[in-house]
Design a protein around this nucleic acid. Sequence first.
RNA 1: GCGCUCUUAGCUCAGUUGGAUAGAGCAUCGGUUUUCUAAACCGAGGGUCGCAGGUUCGAAUCCUGCAGAGCGCGCCA
Length: 581
Amino acid sequence: MNDYISILKKDLLDVIDNLIKNNIVNQDFKKDNLTIDYLSKSKQGEVSTNLFILLNSQLNKNDYDLRKNIHKNIINFEYVKKIEITKVGFINIFFEEDFIIKKLFFLLSHPNNYGNNVSGNNDKINIEFVSANPTGPLHIAHIRGAVLGDALASILQATGHKVTREYYVNDAGSQINILGNSLYKRYQQIFGVKIEISPEEYPGEYLIPIAKLIADSDNDKWLKIKEVERKKFFEGFAIKELVKSIKLDLKSINISFDQFTYESTIVENKIIDKVFSILKDKDLLYEGFLEKPKGDDSADWEPRKQLLFRSSNFTDDRDRPFKKVGGEWTYFANDAAYHYDKYLRNYTHLINIWGADHIGYIKRMKSLTEVISDNPKYLEVYVCQIVRLIKDKNFLKMSKREGNFITLNEIVKKVGKDPLRYFMISSKSETPMDFDMDKVIEKNKDNPVFYCQYAYARASSVINKSKTFKEFKNFKNKFNEFDYSLLSKYEWEIILKLLSWPYLLNQTSLFKQPHRITNYLEDLSSSFHSFWNMGKEDQSLRMLDLENTKKTLTKLLWIESFRIVVKRAFTIIGIEAYENM
RNA sequence: GCGCUCUUAGCUCAGUUGGAUAGAGCAUCGGUUUUCUAAACCGAGGGUCGCAGGUUCGAAUCCUGCAGAGCGCGCCA
C-alpha cells in the first residue's frame, strides 16, 4: 500500500514506536486508536490526525515537550510541506505538491488496476451466496444477497484474494419431491387430465413451459410409466431447467458463479459420515431432548428424543438437532457436511451471505466450522436484511402461495441492471431497505447511479472534445507539462480524493462493506459537478481554455484521472461507464 | 421467555470501524443556461442521533438497562 494515507499512517506509527522505545509513553499504548481523517472529514488540513491527543494523555514524563517534538518529527517527513497543531490537539497536515503529483502520475499510468493491492496474500476464499432453492425463479428477496456477494467477491479479488463464487443447490429435500410432483401435474394438464395444483405445492406458472418441453420431446409416454422412475425423471428435469433459468437471470445482472455444488452430490459422497465421526470423537453429539421454545403456543408439542449437537459448548444458546426422530439427518447435518466439503477443498476462509431469515442459524454453523477447522473465525456470515418493494406508494405483499411474487427478471426489465445493482449495495446490508420501483424507474437526479454516471459522461465529453484540437492530442504523454500552480484549490481537493481510492478500496475489503464505494462515488461526483458549474461563473475555471495550452493540459490530466478512478469503482461494483448519455 | 439484527431531518439513507460545528439526496422555498452535457449547480429552512445511565480529553459510534420494529428458536429447506 503506497497511497498517501497509508504512507503517512505507517510513519506516524513509527513515531509512536520510537516514543514507546524511549519510554516516553507506555508499552500498552493503543496504537489502533490512531486515525487519519481525509477527504471532507478533515476540516482544516489536507488530512488530519489525532496522534497528539492520544499521546498527550499517556505521557510518562511531565517535562517532555510533546507538542514541539511531534511537530519536529512530522515536518521532517520528506513529503510533508506544512503542519499545524490546533489548541485541541488535532494535527493538520499539508503535503508537498511534488509528492502528490508523483502519485497522480502513478494513477495515470495504471488505468486498469489502479487501487488494486496484494494484501490478500493470495488467500483462497470461498464466498457462497444466493443459493436459492431451485423450486422457482429468483425474486426480489434474492437480489440483495446476489449483488452484495458478487460485489464483495470483486472487492476481495481486487485486494489480492483468490475468490471462488459458489452457489449451493438444495436439490435433496422433500421440497424437491413436491416440485417434481407439481411439474408432473402440469404435464398431465397438457394432456387434458383434470388435476389441480394445491397452494402447498408449486402453483406458479413457470412450470408450464417446462412441462411443455417434456411433452414436446416425449409426448405422453410418462403417463404410463411407473411412479418411481417417473418421479426421478420429473425431479431431475425440474431442477435442471430451473437452475438453467436461475443462471440466465443472474447473467442479466452480470453475475456468474465459478461453482455450483449440489446437495445431492454431498449426500451421495457420504461426507456426512466423516463429520459424524469427527463430532462423535470430540463428544459433541448425544441423544437428548430439547425444551419447548417459550414463545411457541402450539398445543401438540411433545418432548422427543433425538441426536443433538452440542453447539451450546460454543457460542450458541442451545443445542441443535443433528438427526430427525426418524433417524434421518437434519438439514443442518447435511449443511454441516457441505461446509466440511468446502473445508476439504482447502479454503483459507469461508464467507456466506444469508438472508435475515437465517439469522438464528449462524451460531450453530459457526460452532460447527470451528470444530472442523479449529478456527473460530473460519466462517464469516454476512446477513442481508429484507428489501421491501414499493410500487405506487404501497408496499407490495408477496406470497408464493398466490404465485404473485415479483421475479428478478421482471425487476431487471423495468429498472435496468445498473440502478438495481447500485441500489442494492448502496446501503449497509444489515439495514432493512425500501426499494421504490417508481423512483428508480424515473432515471433522473433522484437516482444516484445516474448522478455518478453523468459525471463520468461529462468528464468524457471534455476529453473527447479536447481530441479535436491538435495541441491536446496525446495529452496523456505530456505529464511533464503538469503544473499544479495552474490549478484551483477545488481541483487540488479532487486530486486528493482520487488518490485516496486505493486506501478506500482496501478499507472496503477489510470491513466487507461495498456501500463505502457508492458513498465515495457520490462524494467524488458531487465535487466534479460542483467544479463544472463553477466554470459557468468564472471563465478561468473552465476546463478547456484554448488560449492557455499548459493550463488545459494540466486539467486534462486530472480529468483523465477522474475517469480512471470512477471507471475502476464502477467496474468493481459491476455497473457501466458511458461516455455519452 | 431466549438469541441475533435494526432505530440518525417530513421521506430514503451516509457518517471512513471513538474526533473538530452530525452530512447527502428527495420533498418545500428562492436563485443560476450566448460559452466544455441544466440528467447539473448555488442558497435557505428542517435534528433531544429511540429513551436513560456509564466508560474518557472527546460518544450517533463502545458498555449496561429500558422501549419499539424485523427475523429465528424439534421431525421446512
